[in-house]
Design a protein around this nucleic acid. Sequence first.
DNA 1: GGAAGTACGCACAATTTTGTAAGTTTCATC
DNA 2: GATGAAACTTACAAAATTGTGCGTACTTCC
Lengths: 115, 115
Amino acid sequence: MKDHYGCPVKATSNVIAGKWKVLIVWHLSFGMRRFAELRGLLPGVSEKVLAAQLKQLEMDGVVRRTSTRTSPPRVDYALTEPGQDLIPVMQAMCDWASKHFGLTPNLPRLEQKAS
Amino acid sequence: MKDHYGCPVKATSNVIAGKWKVLIVWHLSFGMRRFAELRGLLPGVSEKVLAAQLKQLEMDGVVRRTSTRTSPPRVDYALTEPGQDLIPVMQAMCDWASKHFGLTPNLPRLEQKAS
DNA sequence: GGAAGTACGCACAATTTTGTAAGTTTCATC
DNA sequence: GATGAAACTTACAAAATTGTGCGTACTTCC
């Protein structure tokens, strides 16, 4: 794990620090997604960076990777238990932004749970 | 503001993304601090980076800078209203880290409010 | 047999962030 | 008049992050 200076807040923020990580976790909070689906949901990610961020999230125990060795290979990403526990954190961040910036999600609501 | 891709969670995470920002906000949640005090509380920050992060937090409306033109000049930093509203967000992050990593703050608790 | 799709990996470039070491300004004291 | 403290700036360097363009393995479809 990286430097958190003994601060749990910093430790958590390290896990979701990264240009695409909160967006990935956000999208996965609605259910499992394939690699190509995530790429489609995130306008502008390169495949390399997406793969890297997913691997880091997996290392940090937030997402689970499941690969199926079929005709065209298929890999699914889903939130783990700890990953789902990040939803309240994101909810708090969401509330703050909507109060302070008036930003309302144009993506599906956070209220729903992953299937 | 930076790219938040229309996602309020990302918008909030942008505000506190930065090597020292959550630590700064954390420390300020206990009351106003002078520049030199913050530098002392954050082991390893350079003055340049500390000044830069404080300026960005000020731009984002999270901290307020008050300078007093006295013999040696004195500058105080404190959380604004939006800054105080970040405390529940940090609390959620704190809870997540303590559940997932078993990390308990060695810094003063979050429960207290800024004076 | 060739094209195509999926989920990457790799070398390298560009960008962003952070760090280091020195000024600078404004008084106030010695 | 030199010295010193506080809170920065500025020029430059190093490090970390992100992006670009290709290569690859496997298998099905044409």
